[in-house]
Amino acid sequence: MEVNLKEMCRTVREDILTMIHAAGSGHPGGSLSSVEIMVALYFGDVMKVDAKNPDWNDRDRFILSKGHVAPVLYSVLARKGFFPVEELGTLRKFGSILQGHPHKAHTPGLECSAGSLGQGLSVANGIALAFKKLGTGQRVYCLMGDGELQEGQIWEAAMFAPQQKLDNVCAIVDYNHVQLDGTVEEIKSLDNLPARWNDFGWNVIEVDGHDVNALVHAFKLAALTKDRPSVLIAHTVKGKGVSFMEGDCNWHGNCPNAEQLAQALAEVRGATS
């Protein structure tokens, strides 16, 4: 099935805004900055998955390390057919399969629970190492926020993957420069980020994180790299697509009211990119 990637990005943005509004809480900023990354992965012929058979053994794995952006993942999984789109309306509600932070036991297509930042890359490494040990060929993708690179565990994992030559790992940094309390730069700057990864032994690919075709290309480039893991540093804008959310840390974890939702949806629908 040929999917119009840009169209899908618009749909996912609408889903994110609508579901967070319906839930009354959630994290729009980081969800919106990750949209193109997630769409490229699931709809750009990058990841091998089977929505009808979520536990298919040969599937590629996706680990969401920045668990608070569950809405973008839920939307993509629903649009991919892992569960009915109607379920998106139950986000964060009692008994929902869509927990506020992702829980493996609840959601089809979800590989691992997340919500405590900084842990995803270790998990991705472990899965990738298992694939190496078992001689299977799947790839493992891990989406991290930039703020969570302040967690030391990320750098423990960053040291481990090159040591084990885990070329089946592709990490992605959603480099949107904003965390809950403010900008990453004013809290704990990550300047020189590509060099940091490079000096830890990674193949570093910088990419415009809102250019979905460039992302697809970058993922394919990463898959061609042998003997070391790759990291995509995706330059993004927090709250991308909604003017009043863009770059504003107050929209890290805030819910749009009806009026704001209407404006946001209008902007997203009208977007040409």
Binding site: G118, E151, G152
Partner: peptide
């Protein structure tokens, strides 16, 4: 240097 808190 392998401890993550070092890099924090």
């Amino acid at each position: 240097m392998q401890e993550g808190v070092t890099w924090e």
